[in-house]
Design a protein around this nucleic acid. Structure first.
Length: 404
RNA sequence: GCGUCGGUGGCGGAGUGGUCAAUCGCGGCGGACUGUAAAUCCGCUGACUUUAUGUCUACGUUGGUUCAAAUCCAACCCGGCGCA
Protein backbone atom coordinates (compact mmCIF):
# COMPACT_ATOMS: atom_id res chain seq x y z
CA UNK A 1 0.00 0.00 0.00
CA UNK A 2 1.25 3.42 -0.90
CA UNK A 3 2.25 5.86 1.82
CA UNK A 4 0.62 8.70 -0.12
CA UNK A 5 -2.95 9.08 -1.28
CA UNK A 6 -4.11 11.22 -4.15
CA UNK A 7 -7.70 12.41 -4.50
CA UNK A 8 -9.04 14.39 -7.45
CA UNK A 9 -11.75 16.90 -6.58
CA UNK A 10 -12.36 18.69 -9.86
CA UNK A 11 -11.19 18.56 -13.45
CA UNK A 12 -10.91 21.20 -16.13
CA UNK A 13 -13.51 20.50 -18.82
CA UNK A 14 -12.07 18.69 -21.82
CA UNK A 15 -8.54 19.08 -20.51
CA UNK A 16 -6.14 16.91 -18.54
CA UNK A 17 -6.00 19.41 -15.67
CA UNK A 18 -7.31 18.66 -12.21
CA UNK A 19 -7.38 19.96 -8.66
CA UNK A 20 -6.99 17.55 -5.79
CA UNK A 21 -5.34 16.65 -2.51
CA UNK A 22 -2.16 14.68 -2.05
CA UNK A 23 -1.95 13.17 1.44
CA UNK A 24 1.50 12.41 2.82
CA UNK A 25 2.76 11.20 6.22
CA UNK A 26 3.54 14.85 7.01
CA UNK A 27 0.28 16.39 5.91
CA UNK A 28 -1.83 17.20 2.88
CA UNK A 29 -0.87 19.13 -0.23
CA UNK A 30 -3.60 20.95 -2.08
CA UNK A 31 -2.82 20.45 -5.76
CA UNK A 32 -1.82 21.81 -8.17
CA UNK A 33 1.00 23.09 -5.96
CA UNK A 34 4.41 24.66 -6.25
CA UNK A 35 7.12 22.76 -4.41
CA UNK A 36 9.72 25.03 -2.84
CA UNK A 37 13.28 24.05 -3.60
CA UNK A 38 15.62 23.71 -0.65
CA UNK A 39 18.50 21.84 -2.25
CA UNK A 40 20.87 21.63 0.69
CA UNK A 41 18.10 21.32 3.30
CA UNK A 42 17.70 25.07 3.25
CA UNK A 43 15.77 27.46 1.07
CA UNK A 44 18.57 29.89 0.33
CA UNK A 45 18.43 33.13 2.28
CA UNK A 46 15.28 32.11 4.20
CA UNK A 47 14.38 30.54 7.52
CA UNK A 48 11.78 27.77 7.43
CA UNK A 49 9.40 30.05 9.33
CA UNK A 50 9.68 32.56 6.50
CA UNK A 51 9.17 29.76 3.97
CA UNK A 52 6.03 28.66 5.79
CA UNK A 53 4.75 32.24 5.85
CA UNK A 54 4.90 32.44 2.06
CA UNK A 55 2.31 29.67 1.93
CA UNK A 56 4.71 26.87 1.03
CA UNK A 57 3.19 23.41 1.46
CA UNK A 58 6.11 21.16 0.55
CA UNK A 59 9.88 21.40 0.23
CA UNK A 60 12.26 19.49 -2.04
CA UNK A 61 15.91 18.80 -1.19
CA UNK A 62 18.65 17.16 -3.23
CA UNK A 63 20.26 13.78 -2.67
CA UNK A 64 23.54 14.61 -4.36
CA UNK A 65 24.15 17.78 -2.37
CA UNK A 66 23.18 16.31 0.99
CA UNK A 67 25.21 13.18 0.31
CA UNK A 68 28.31 15.33 -0.22
CA UNK A 69 27.52 17.67 2.61
CA UNK A 70 26.87 16.98 5.44
CA UNK A 71 26.53 13.30 4.45
CA UNK A 72 23.64 10.88 4.85
CA UNK A 73 24.79 9.67 8.27
CA UNK A 74 24.34 13.14 9.73
CA UNK A 75 20.82 13.34 8.31
CA UNK A 76 20.05 9.94 9.79
CA UNK A 77 21.44 10.89 13.19
CA UNK A 78 19.62 14.21 13.14
CA UNK A 79 16.32 12.40 12.92
CA UNK A 80 16.00 12.74 9.14
CA UNK A 81 15.35 15.70 6.90
CA UNK A 82 12.25 17.09 8.61
CA UNK A 83 13.87 17.38 12.00
CA UNK A 84 17.24 18.44 10.67
CA UNK A 85 15.91 21.41 8.70
CA UNK A 86 13.00 22.19 11.02
CA UNK A 87 10.22 21.60 8.49
CA UNK A 88 7.25 19.58 9.63
CA UNK A 89 5.35 19.59 6.36
CA UNK A 90 5.68 17.24 3.42
CA UNK A 91 9.11 16.83 1.82
CA UNK A 92 10.64 15.39 -1.31
CA UNK A 93 14.16 14.66 -2.48
CA UNK A 94 15.44 14.66 -6.02
CA UNK A 95 17.52 11.61 -6.83
CA UNK A 96 20.72 13.21 -8.09
CA UNK A 97 19.79 12.39 -11.67
CA UNK A 98 19.62 16.04 -12.64
CA UNK A 99 23.29 16.43 -11.71
CA UNK A 100 24.19 13.99 -14.50
CA UNK A 101 23.13 16.91 -16.70
CA UNK A 102 24.08 20.00 -14.71
CA UNK A 103 27.53 18.66 -13.82
CA UNK A 104 27.92 16.75 -17.09
CA UNK A 105 26.85 18.07 -20.47
CA UNK A 106 25.84 21.45 -19.08
CA UNK A 107 28.99 22.07 -17.06
CA UNK A 108 30.71 25.25 -18.15
CA UNK A 109 28.22 25.68 -21.02
CA UNK A 110 25.37 28.12 -21.24
CA UNK A 111 22.79 25.38 -21.51
CA UNK A 112 19.54 25.10 -19.66
CA UNK A 113 17.14 22.16 -19.74
CA UNK A 114 14.82 24.46 -21.68
CA UNK A 115 15.90 25.12 -25.26
CA UNK A 116 14.82 28.44 -26.72
CA UNK A 117 14.66 29.16 -30.43
CA UNK A 118 17.02 27.35 -32.77
CA UNK A 119 19.55 26.32 -30.16
CA UNK A 120 20.63 23.30 -32.09
CA UNK A 121 24.31 22.92 -31.42
CA UNK A 122 25.48 19.37 -31.08
CA UNK A 123 26.11 18.25 -27.56
CA UNK A 124 29.59 17.23 -26.60
CA UNK A 125 28.42 13.87 -25.32
CA UNK A 126 27.35 12.77 -28.78
CA UNK A 127 30.43 13.99 -30.53
CA UNK A 128 32.21 11.54 -28.28
CA UNK A 129 34.30 14.33 -26.87
CA UNK A 130 35.48 14.04 -23.35
CA UNK A 131 34.50 17.25 -21.73
CA UNK A 132 37.50 18.31 -19.74
CA UNK A 133 35.53 20.38 -17.32
CA UNK A 134 32.62 17.96 -16.85
CA UNK A 135 32.12 16.62 -13.36
CA UNK A 136 29.75 13.79 -14.25
CA UNK A 137 30.13 10.74 -16.43
CA UNK A 138 27.27 8.36 -17.24
CA UNK A 139 27.61 4.60 -17.70
CA UNK A 140 25.05 1.77 -17.65
CA UNK A 141 25.77 1.13 -14.00
CA UNK A 142 25.28 4.72 -12.90
CA UNK A 143 26.92 8.14 -12.78
CA UNK A 144 30.41 8.94 -11.56
CA UNK A 145 30.57 12.42 -10.11
CA UNK A 146 33.54 14.53 -9.27
CA UNK A 147 32.48 16.56 -6.28
CA UNK A 148 32.02 20.23 -7.16
CA UNK A 149 33.15 20.97 -3.62
CA UNK A 150 36.52 19.20 -3.41
CA UNK A 151 36.95 17.21 -6.63
CA UNK A 152 36.66 13.81 -4.92
CA UNK A 153 35.08 10.98 -6.92
CA UNK A 154 31.71 9.43 -6.11
CA UNK A 155 29.65 6.78 -7.86
CA UNK A 156 25.86 6.91 -7.84
CA UNK A 157 23.76 3.95 -8.90
CA UNK A 158 19.98 3.68 -8.73
CA UNK A 159 20.42 1.46 -5.67
CA UNK A 160 22.77 3.90 -3.97
CA UNK A 161 20.42 6.81 -4.68
CA UNK A 162 17.58 4.92 -3.01
CA UNK A 163 19.72 4.13 0.03
CA UNK A 164 20.79 7.73 0.42
CA UNK A 165 17.25 9.01 -0.08
CA UNK A 166 15.94 6.62 2.55
CA UNK A 167 18.60 7.86 4.93
CA UNK A 168 17.70 11.47 4.22
CA UNK A 169 14.11 10.50 4.84
CA UNK A 170 11.79 12.63 2.70
CA UNK A 171 8.14 11.61 2.27
CA UNK A 172 8.42 11.36 -1.49
CA UNK A 173 11.57 10.42 -3.34
CA UNK A 174 12.46 10.10 -7.00
CA UNK A 175 13.87 7.25 -9.06
CA UNK A 176 17.43 7.74 -10.27
CA UNK A 177 17.31 8.98 -13.86
CA UNK A 178 19.44 10.68 -16.46
CA UNK A 179 18.45 14.20 -17.40
CA UNK A 180 19.69 14.91 -20.91
CA UNK A 181 20.65 18.13 -22.63
CA UNK A 182 18.21 19.66 -25.13
CA UNK A 183 21.18 19.72 -27.49
CA UNK A 184 21.56 15.95 -27.41
CA UNK A 185 20.63 14.08 -30.59
CA UNK A 186 17.59 11.85 -30.99
CA UNK A 187 19.87 8.81 -30.79
CA UNK A 188 21.39 9.94 -27.53
CA UNK A 189 18.00 10.83 -26.03
CA UNK A 190 16.74 7.38 -26.92
CA UNK A 191 19.76 5.65 -25.46
CA UNK A 192 19.55 7.70 -22.25
CA UNK A 193 15.82 7.05 -22.00
CA UNK A 194 16.35 3.30 -22.16
CA UNK A 195 18.93 3.61 -19.42
CA UNK A 196 16.52 5.66 -17.30
CA UNK A 197 13.90 2.92 -17.68
CA UNK A 198 16.34 0.23 -16.54
CA UNK A 199 17.37 2.46 -13.66
CA UNK A 200 13.69 2.99 -12.77
CA UNK A 201 13.24 -0.75 -12.37
CA UNK A 202 16.37 -1.01 -10.23
CA UNK A 203 15.29 2.00 -8.15
CA UNK A 204 11.89 0.45 -7.49
CA UNK A 205 13.38 -2.90 -6.50
CA UNK A 206 15.84 -1.38 -4.03
CA UNK A 207 13.19 0.98 -2.66
CA UNK A 208 10.93 -1.99 -1.86
CA UNK A 209 13.74 -3.81 -0.06
CA UNK A 210 14.53 -0.71 1.97
CA UNK A 211 10.87 -0.22 2.94
CA UNK A 212 10.83 -3.78 4.25
CA UNK A 213 14.08 -3.27 6.12
CA UNK A 214 13.28 0.02 7.79
CA UNK A 215 9.50 -0.19 8.04
CA UNK A 216 9.18 3.50 7.19
CA UNK A 217 6.64 5.31 5.06
CA UNK A 218 8.02 6.67 1.86
CA UNK A 219 6.64 7.07 -1.64
CA UNK A 220 8.67 6.62 -4.83
CA UNK A 221 8.00 8.56 -8.00
CA UNK A 222 9.19 7.20 -11.35
CA UNK A 223 10.55 9.62 -13.94
CA UNK A 224 9.51 9.90 -17.58
CA UNK A 225 12.19 11.07 -20.02
CA UNK A 226 12.38 11.24 -23.82
CA UNK A 227 13.44 14.82 -24.49
CA UNK A 228 11.37 16.74 -27.01
CA UNK A 229 10.44 13.72 -29.15
CA UNK A 230 6.84 12.59 -29.24
CA UNK A 231 7.52 8.91 -29.85
CA UNK A 232 10.14 8.76 -27.09
CA UNK A 233 8.00 10.66 -24.59
CA UNK A 234 5.02 8.38 -25.22
CA UNK A 235 7.13 5.25 -25.05
CA UNK A 236 8.68 6.43 -21.81
CA UNK A 237 5.30 7.29 -20.32
CA UNK A 238 4.02 3.81 -21.20
CA UNK A 239 7.00 1.96 -19.79
CA UNK A 240 7.19 3.98 -16.58
CA UNK A 241 3.39 3.67 -16.11
CA UNK A 242 3.67 -0.08 -16.14
CA UNK A 243 5.92 -0.03 -13.10
CA UNK A 244 4.27 0.25 -9.72
CA UNK A 245 5.33 3.75 -8.71
CA UNK A 246 3.37 5.87 -6.23
CA UNK A 247 3.47 8.82 -8.58
CA UNK A 248 5.40 10.19 -11.50
CA UNK A 249 7.93 12.83 -12.37
CA UNK A 250 8.30 14.30 -15.82
CA UNK A 251 11.92 15.19 -16.33
CA UNK A 252 14.45 16.03 -18.95
CA UNK A 253 14.76 18.70 -21.53
CA UNK A 254 12.15 20.54 -23.56
CA UNK A 255 11.73 23.11 -26.28
CA UNK A 256 10.21 26.19 -24.71
CA UNK A 257 7.54 26.41 -27.41
CA UNK A 258 6.10 22.91 -27.17
CA UNK A 259 6.92 21.96 -23.60
CA UNK A 260 3.28 21.76 -22.62
CA UNK A 261 2.35 19.74 -25.66
CA UNK A 262 5.04 17.27 -24.65
CA UNK A 263 3.71 17.22 -21.11
CA UNK A 264 0.25 16.49 -22.54
CA UNK A 265 1.57 13.49 -24.51
CA UNK A 266 2.91 12.06 -21.29
CA UNK A 267 -0.02 12.80 -19.01
CA UNK A 268 -2.59 11.36 -21.38
CA UNK A 269 -0.78 8.05 -20.90
CA UNK A 270 0.13 8.16 -17.20
CA UNK A 271 -2.53 6.71 -14.86
CA UNK A 272 -4.98 9.41 -13.85
CA UNK A 273 -5.20 8.43 -10.19
CA UNK A 274 -1.57 9.13 -9.30
CA UNK A 275 0.16 12.48 -8.86
CA UNK A 276 2.42 13.95 -11.54
CA UNK A 277 5.32 16.23 -10.88
CA UNK A 278 6.87 18.36 -13.62
CA UNK A 279 10.48 18.56 -12.59
CA UNK A 280 12.33 21.86 -12.57
CA UNK A 281 9.69 24.00 -14.23
CA UNK A 282 8.42 27.22 -12.81
CA UNK A 283 7.97 30.40 -14.83
CA UNK A 284 4.49 31.91 -14.57
CA UNK A 285 3.41 30.95 -18.08
CA UNK A 286 4.57 27.38 -17.54
CA UNK A 287 2.14 26.74 -14.69
CA UNK A 288 -0.92 27.30 -16.87
CA UNK A 289 0.38 25.14 -19.68
CA UNK A 290 1.50 22.44 -17.29
CA UNK A 291 -1.66 22.36 -15.23
CA UNK A 292 -4.08 22.25 -18.14
CA UNK A 293 -2.01 19.35 -19.40
CA UNK A 294 -2.37 17.40 -16.20
CA UNK A 295 0.49 18.42 -13.92
CA UNK A 296 -0.13 18.40 -10.16
CA UNK A 297 3.25 19.48 -8.77
CA UNK A 298 6.03 21.78 -9.93
CA UNK A 299 9.37 22.60 -8.40
CA UNK A 300 11.79 25.20 -9.61
CA UNK A 301 14.79 27.20 -8.46
CA UNK A 302 13.76 30.16 -10.60
CA UNK A 303 11.77 32.15 -8.01
CA UNK A 304 14.51 32.08 -5.39
CA UNK A 305 17.49 32.28 -7.73
CA UNK A 306 16.02 35.19 -9.65
CA UNK A 307 15.18 36.89 -6.38
CA UNK A 308 18.80 36.66 -5.25
CA UNK A 309 19.82 38.21 -8.56
CA UNK A 310 17.40 41.12 -8.26
CA UNK A 311 14.66 39.98 -10.65
CA UNK A 312 11.25 40.19 -9.05
CA UNK A 313 7.79 39.11 -10.13
CA UNK A 314 4.91 41.55 -10.21
CA UNK A 315 1.41 41.02 -11.58
CA UNK A 316 2.46 43.25 -14.48
CA UNK A 317 5.54 41.24 -15.35
CA UNK A 318 8.96 40.89 -13.90
CA UNK A 319 11.21 43.77 -12.98
CA UNK A 320 14.88 44.12 -12.11
CA UNK A 321 15.02 46.17 -8.89
CA UNK A 322 18.61 47.06 -9.69
CA UNK A 323 17.42 49.27 -12.53
CA UNK A 324 18.15 52.97 -11.99
CA UNK A 325 14.47 53.91 -12.02
CA UNK A 326 13.83 52.13 -8.71
CA UNK A 327 16.39 54.10 -6.70
CA UNK A 328 13.72 56.71 -5.98
CA UNK A 329 10.64 54.51 -6.08
CA UNK A 330 9.15 54.54 -2.59
CA UNK A 331 6.27 52.20 -3.37
CA UNK A 332 6.04 48.45 -2.66
CA UNK A 333 6.94 45.93 -5.38
CA UNK A 334 3.28 45.13 -5.82
CA UNK A 335 0.62 47.19 -4.06
CA UNK A 336 -1.81 44.26 -3.92
CA UNK A 337 0.71 41.73 -2.66
CA UNK A 338 0.20 40.44 0.86
CA UNK A 339 3.72 39.11 1.41
CA UNK A 340 5.89 40.33 4.26
CA UNK A 341 8.20 42.23 1.92
CA UNK A 342 5.45 44.15 0.15
CA UNK A 343 3.69 44.89 3.44
CA UNK A 344 6.78 46.49 4.93
CA UNK A 345 9.30 47.66 2.34
CA UNK A 346 9.65 49.77 -0.80
CA UNK A 347 11.42 49.23 -4.11
CA UNK A 348 13.82 52.03 -3.18
CA UNK A 349 14.82 50.10 -0.06
CA UNK A 350 15.31 46.85 -1.98
CA UNK A 351 17.27 48.76 -4.60
CA UNK A 352 19.51 50.10 -1.86
CA UNK A 353 19.99 46.66 -0.27
CA UNK A 354 20.94 45.08 -3.61
CA UNK A 355 23.35 47.88 -4.51
CA UNK A 356 24.92 47.75 -1.08
CA UNK A 357 25.12 43.96 -1.44
CA UNK A 358 23.34 43.47 1.85
CA UNK A 359 22.14 39.91 2.45
CA UNK A 360 18.70 41.09 3.52
CA UNK A 361 18.14 41.91 -0.15
CA UNK A 362 18.15 38.20 -1.01
CA UNK A 363 15.86 37.37 1.88
CA UNK A 364 13.23 40.02 1.15
CA UNK A 365 13.25 39.35 -2.59
CA UNK A 366 13.03 35.57 -2.04
CA UNK A 367 10.09 35.99 0.30
CA UNK A 368 8.25 37.96 -2.35
CA UNK A 369 9.04 35.74 -5.35
CA UNK A 370 8.25 32.59 -3.45
CA UNK A 371 4.97 34.01 -2.19
CA UNK A 372 4.12 35.21 -5.70
CA UNK A 373 4.85 31.82 -7.25
CA UNK A 374 3.10 29.72 -4.62
CA UNK A 375 0.07 31.99 -4.69
CA UNK A 376 -0.09 31.91 -8.47
CA UNK A 377 -0.28 28.12 -8.54
CA UNK A 378 -2.77 28.22 -5.69
CA UNK A 379 -4.89 30.77 -7.57
CA UNK A 380 -4.88 28.47 -10.58
CA UNK A 381 -6.01 25.64 -8.31
CA UNK A 382 -8.87 27.77 -7.03
CA UNK A 383 -9.82 28.72 -10.56
CA UNK A 384 -10.19 25.02 -11.39
CA UNK A 385 -12.41 24.50 -8.36
CA UNK A 386 -14.41 27.61 -9.29
CA UNK A 387 -14.60 26.53 -12.92
CA UNK A 388 -13.05 29.68 -14.30
CA UNK A 389 -9.58 28.45 -15.24
CA UNK A 390 -9.71 29.87 -18.77
CA UNK A 391 -10.77 33.34 -17.63
CA UNK A 392 -8.13 33.45 -14.94
CA UNK A 393 -5.46 32.26 -17.36
CA UNK A 394 -6.36 34.90 -19.92
CA UNK A 395 -6.46 37.66 -17.37
CA UNK A 396 -3.19 36.74 -15.68
CA UNK A 397 -1.16 36.11 -18.81
CA UNK A 398 -2.49 39.25 -20.45
CA UNK A 399 -1.37 41.37 -17.56
CA UNK A 400 1.91 39.60 -16.82
CA UNK A 401 3.22 39.29 -20.36
CA UNK A 402 1.20 42.03 -22.00
CA UNK A 403 3.37 44.84 -20.70
CA UNK A 404 6.70 43.32 -21.64
C1' G B 1 61.97 77.83 1.82
C1' C B 2 65.07 73.50 0.55
C1' G B 3 64.97 68.30 -0.64
C1' U B 4 62.20 64.30 -2.40
C1' C B 5 58.24 61.40 -4.50
C1' G B 6 54.04 61.94 -7.31
C1' G B 7 49.85 64.18 -10.51
C1' U B 8 46.47 58.94 -16.12
C1' G B 9 39.09 57.78 -17.51
C1' G B 10 33.44 58.65 -11.90
C1' C B 11 37.17 56.22 -8.11
C1' G B 12 41.61 53.07 -7.23
C1' G B 13 45.54 51.83 -10.12
C1' A B 14 48.65 49.76 -14.72
C1' G B 15 51.46 51.65 -18.70
C1' U B 16 57.62 54.78 -18.61
C1' G B 17 59.34 56.92 -26.67
C1' G B 18 55.75 54.06 -31.66
C1' U B 19 51.03 48.08 -32.10
C1' C B 20 47.48 53.39 -26.35
C1' A B 21 41.17 55.80 -26.23
C1' A B 22 44.84 53.53 -22.69
C1' U B 23 45.58 46.21 -18.90
C1' C B 24 42.85 45.37 -14.47
C1' G B 25 39.68 46.15 -10.23
C1' C B 26 35.62 49.07 -8.25
C1' G B 27 31.54 51.98 -9.48
C1' G B 28 27.69 52.97 -13.29
C1' C B 29 24.06 51.17 -17.28
C1' G B 30 21.51 46.98 -19.21
C1' G B 31 20.58 41.70 -19.83
C1' A B 32 20.28 36.50 -18.51
C1' C B 33 18.81 32.86 -14.93
C1' U B 34 13.47 26.82 -15.31
C1' G B 35 14.61 18.79 -10.77
C1' U B 36 20.63 25.20 -7.39
C1' A B 37 28.38 23.96 -9.39
C1' A B 38 24.83 30.17 -8.62
C1' A B 39 24.19 36.44 -3.02
C1' U B 40 26.02 33.84 -10.00
C1' C B 41 27.04 34.81 -15.06
C1' C B 42 27.18 37.94 -19.71
C1' G B 43 27.44 42.62 -22.45
C1' C B 44 28.30 48.00 -22.53
C1' U B 45 30.80 52.08 -19.95
C1' G B 46 35.67 59.46 -23.52
C1' A B 47 32.71 62.19 -27.45
C1' C B 48 30.51 61.89 -32.28
C1' U B 49 28.53 59.43 -36.26
C1' U B 50 27.25 56.03 -41.75
C1' U B 51 28.58 51.61 -34.57
C1' A B 52 33.49 51.03 -38.02
C1' U B 53 40.48 47.34 -39.04
C1' G B 54 35.57 55.25 -38.61
C1' U B 55 36.48 60.54 -37.04
C1' C B 56 37.79 63.72 -33.09
C1' U B 57 39.53 65.29 -28.23
C1' A B 58 42.47 63.08 -24.18
C1' C B 59 47.21 61.05 -19.53
C1' G B 60 48.07 68.56 -14.06
C1' U B 61 49.42 73.40 -17.26
C1' U B 62 52.53 75.65 -20.90
C1' G B 63 56.53 75.24 -23.99
C1' G B 64 60.42 72.16 -26.09
C1' U B 65 63.27 67.61 -28.09
C1' U B 66 61.80 63.80 -31.82
C1' C B 67 59.58 61.26 -38.03
C1' A B 68 56.73 59.87 -33.43
C1' A B 69 55.58 61.82 -26.37
C1' A B 70 51.02 59.59 -21.16
C1' U B 71 56.14 58.07 -21.59
C1' C B 72 62.32 62.41 -22.56
C1' C B 73 63.62 67.90 -21.17
C1' A B 74 62.29 72.87 -18.93
C1' A B 75 59.27 76.13 -16.29
C1' C B 76 54.94 76.67 -13.68
C1' C B 77 50.58 74.86 -10.73
C1' C B 78 48.85 71.19 -7.16
C1' G B 79 49.46 67.09 -3.45
C1' G B 80 52.26 63.53 -0.01
C1' C B 81 56.58 62.91 2.89
C1' G B 82 61.32 64.67 5.17
C1' C B 83 64.31 68.77 6.90
C1' A B 84 64.16 73.73 8.39
Amino acid sequence: MSSIKFTINKKINDRLGRAGVLSTPHGDIQTPAFVTVGTKATVKAMTMEQVADTGAQVVLANTYHLYLQPGEEILKKAGKLHKFMNWNGPTMTDSGGFQAFSLGAAFGEHVSKIAKGEDGRIAKQEKGEEVLSALAKVTEDGVTFKSHIDGSKHHFTPERSMEIQHNIGADMIFAFDECTSPQASYEYQKEAMGRTHRWAKRSLARHRELLKENGEKRALLGIVQGGRHEDLRKESARIISEMDFDGFGIGGSFDKEDMHTAVGWVNSILPEDKPRHLLGIGEPIDFFGGIENGVDLFDCVAPTRMARNGTIHTKNGRINVLNAKYVNDFTPIDSDCTCYTCQNYTKAYLSHLFRAKEMLASTLASIHNLHFTIKLVDDIRRSILDENFEEFKKEFLGRYYGNQ
